[in-house]
Design a protein around this nucleic acid. Sequence first.
DNA 1: AGTTCGGACCGTT
DNA 2: AACGGTCCGAACT
Length: 162
Amino acid sequence: MLQLPIPTRDGTFLATFSDQGLAGLTFPALRNNARRKPAPISREVQRWHRATERAVNQALAGRKASGLPPLDLSPGTAFQQSVWRALQGIPAGATRSYGEIARAVGSPRASRAVGQACGANPIPVLIPCHRALAAGGKLGGFSGGLDWKRRLLQREGSLPQE
DNA sequence: AGTTCGGACCGTT
DNA sequence: AACGGTCCGAACT
């Protein structure tokens, strides 16, 4: 597992790579994160890193993220992975309610569990858990902080009740 | 139209 | 057994 910085106009995200692909993404820390030792990086991870940096910046601009690296979602349960997969199917500029996602994954009564799975999303922004809203167009929650959720939705032109 | 309350529901720890 | 990024209806203001 290897961590590499992802500089953006919103600060420096931190990407975690496993040997399977991108495994995690964390929002910028409030203070500058200490610099890491320059560990040797394989060519493959270098490619993934560049792809991640580009995709994150696209997503932060409210555009569709293209050329994603392989995502390593293996630590997730089957249910969580199906939710994360459903989230990836929501295009930029669109939103779904937790209940709608629950129906989409075949557990129509599991809206709460869907919210729980969204909170466990290891790769926010690229796996767009911010496009999951509460019923009736209400914002709902966000583990990364609601300010981030609003910012991301606003850049996609999807901020509810604006 | 907006709010609060209470129960029901489901996956995770 | 308890907890959530929920949902829905009912009963308020």
